[in-house]
Amino acid sequence: MTPKPKNTQITKRHNPWKIAFVTLILVLIFAVSFVSIRAFSPMPAQDNQTKLTAKNESFSVTFNKKQINGFIHYYLANQLKNETVKYNFTLEKHAVLTGKLYFLNQPVEFSLACDPYVLENGNVQLKARSIAVGRLNLPLTFVMGYISHNFKLPKWVEVDANKQLINLKLNQFKLANGMQFTAKRIDLKQDKIEFNVFLPPVK
């Protein structure tokens, strides 16, 4: 059953400084996510879920695939610069994860195509649809299991190899300054990706 996007009215605010700051935040997509790597380190979540309340001031912002891909490339280039296993994630007709896996001690390039869905709680679910692994005929479950155990993924990214899903648990992610966000709309065909941004409550 295909998850349904949440239809919630979000108060729009057009303060220029907020829009500029959110542009930096979205380096994490999808990852959730999202201008430095330290600034984007997730804080420990309480009870495995960060709750958003009516006291949080919020606004929405929209990007296209080219902008999001630029943010993701910058983020991964810094996050994985000291890692031997590297990968890339881009938004095209589908969400595409590419990288290398080792099969019988031989490096093999792969490309995993997924369909993104926005869940009612603002999280994002990537449903795997196809896999290309060189000339090998490897099952999706094998490749996704390899990704889960060998790739350096943020703690709020969960790979379910059996169900062939990648879950981006944005409700378990918070910036160091307390800012949070949820997905509102991901329409790759129309080239529109929209997020709700929640500012920390003023004490």
Rank of each mutant, 00 (worst) to 15 (best):
N48F: 11
Q164W: 05
P154V: 02
R38M: 02
P201K: 00
E92N: 14
M144G: 09
T23M: 04
R185S: 14
E158N: 04
Q190C: 07
S111Q: 12
V32T: 01
N137M: 00
P42W: 01
K184S: 14
E92S: 15
I19Q: 12
N162T: 12
T50V: 12
V35T: 10
Y87T: 07
A128E: 00
A113T: 13
N105G: 06
F21W: 08
S36Q: 09
G145W: 04
L188T: 11
P154Y: 00
V22R: 04
N56F: 15
I166N: 06
L80M: 12
N64L: 03
N15Q: 14
L28E: 00
E57W: 04
V85F: 07
V32A: 02
K18L: 15
Y102G: 04
T84A: 03
K184Y: 10
K86F: 07
F198Y: 04
R129C: 01
P107T: 13
K93R: 15
L175G: 06
W156A: 02
F34Q: 02
I186H: 05
L26R: 10
N78S: 08
P139W: 01
I131P: 05
A77G: 03
R38Q: 02
T50Q: 14
A39I: 02
P3F: 15
K184C: 13
F59M: 11
F173N: 01
A39M: 10
L136H: 02
P154W: 05
L24D: 12
I37S: 03
V35P: 07
Y117C: 05
T62K: 13
S41M: 09
P116Y: 00
L52E: 00
T98E: 08
K6H: 09
T50I: 15
E120W: 10
T53D: 13
F34V: 05
N171S: 13
N88E: 00
F195C: 08
L188G: 13
G145F: 03
M1N: 09
N121I: 06
A95C: 15
S148H: 04
E109L: 14
Q125V: 03
P42C: 07
T98D: 11
N121H: 06
T50A: 14
M144R: 08
H73V: 03
